[in-house]
Amino acid sequence: MKKRGFEIVSQYANAGLTLPARSTERAAGYDFAAATDIVIPASIEGVQKPVLIPTGIKAYMQADEYLQLVSRSSLPKKKHLVMPNAVGIIDADYYNNEQNEGEIMVQVLNISQEAVLIKKGDRIAQGIFLPYLLADQDEETSKAVRAGGFGSTGEG
């Protein structure tokens, strides 16, 4: 039985991607890389628009776990890119959803005045598997079944 790990989404099956891996013996995070070359536009007159960088990767895990997606520490310093939400949460039921097969996308903002080129294979984020706890009242609320992909659990 699989406990937790990564797979390449079918769209990128022949794209030569590698699965996320830890870079050092004691690293907590698995490094995620860009699946394609992508240009992140410059901030125009102080207006920044988030861009989704495809990874071509999906993650599976236990029902009481999630994958926390965080920026690599070098991303703001070297590329002037930040994650607008600071932390991305990949829920266990995101895996193999109908809309995008559970592909993990990294949302970034370019805080510089110049466009930034991210090349296929550039490490852009890291993911850490974590358990979570439920509140006593959790069973009292009804929950939907996930059908969609990125940002599909509702507005606001």
Score class of each variant (00 low, 15 high):
residue 96 N to F: 10
residue 139 E to G: 13
residue 137 Q to G: 13
residue 137 Q to S: 15
residue 128 I to P: 09
residue 124 I to N: 02
residue 131 P to S: 06
residue 123 R to P: 03
residue 91 D to W: 01
residue 107 Q to N: 13
residue 105 M to Y: 14
residue 101 E to Y: 13
residue 117 L to H: 13
residue 116 V to E: 04
residue 90 I to G: 00
residue 93 D to L: 04
residue 90 I to A: 00
residue 115 A to R: 06
residue 135 A to N: 12
residue 137 Q to P: 08
residue 119 K to R: 15
residue 101 E to C: 11
residue 107 Q to H: 08
residue 98 E to Y: 09
residue 128 I to A: 10
residue 105 M to D: 05
residue 130 L to F: 02
residue 90 I to E: 00
residue 132 Y to F: 15
residue 106 V to Y: 00
residue 112 S to K: 08
residue 109 L to W: 06
residue 91 D to I: 00
residue 97 N to E: 12
residue 108 V to D: 03
residue 93 D to W: 01
residue 131 P to D: 04
residue 122 D to P: 02
residue 129 F to E: 01
residue 99 Q to E: 15
residue 102 G to S: 03
residue 115 A to S: 15
residue 92 A to N: 11
residue 95 Y to I: 05
residue 89 I to E: 05
residue 106 V to D: 02
residue 93 D to N: 10
residue 128 I to Q: 07
residue 94 Y to N: 01
residue 89 I to S: 06
residue 91 D to A: 00
residue 111 I to N: 10
residue 104 I to L: 11
residue 124 I to P: 00
residue 125 A to T: 03
residue 90 I to K: 00
residue 101 E to M: 11
residue 139 E to D: 14
residue 131 P to I: 00
residue 100 N to F: 10
residue 140 E to D: 15
residue 91 D to E: 07
residue 111 I to P: 05
residue 89 I to L: 10
residue 113 Q to F: 13
residue 129 F to Q: 03
residue 131 P to T: 05
residue 126 Q to G: 02
residue 113 Q to I: 12
residue 136 D to W: 06
residue 122 D to H: 02
residue 113 Q to L: 15
residue 110 N to G: 04
residue 136 D to Q: 12
residue 117 L to F: 11
residue 96 N to A: 14
residue 127 G to M: 05
residue 106 V to E: 01
residue 133 L to F: 14
residue 93 D to K: 05
residue 99 Q to W: 07
residue 117 L to P: 07
residue 105 M to V: 11
residue 118 I to D: 00
residue 97 N to L: 08
residue 137 Q to K: 15
residue 138 D to H: 13
residue 126 Q to R: 07
residue 113 Q to P: 05
residue 136 D to H: 09
residue 111 I to L: 15
residue 138 D to E: 12
residue 105 M to E: 11
residue 92 A to K: 02
residue 121 G to F: 06
residue 136 D to L: 10
residue 104 I to D: 00
residue 93 D to H: 08
residue 90 I to M: 02
residue 125 A to Y: 02
residue 100 N to S: 12
residue 139 E to M: 08
residue 114 E to N: 14
residue 103 E to W: 05
residue 114 E to R: 14
residue 102 G to I: 01
residue 98 E to G: 12
residue 119 K to L: 12
residue 119 K to N: 15
residue 136 D to P: 03
residue 98 E to D: 14
residue 103 E to P: 01
residue 105 M to S: 09
residue 102 G to F: 01
residue 103 E to A: 02
residue 140 E to H: 14
residue 132 Y to E: 06
residue 100 N to Q: 12
residue 97 N to S: 10
residue 132 Y to N: 09
residue 133 L to Q: 15
residue 139 E to F: 09
residue 92 A to Q: 10
residue 128 I to N: 03
residue 131 P to R: 06
residue 134 L to F: 12
residue 98 E to Q: 12
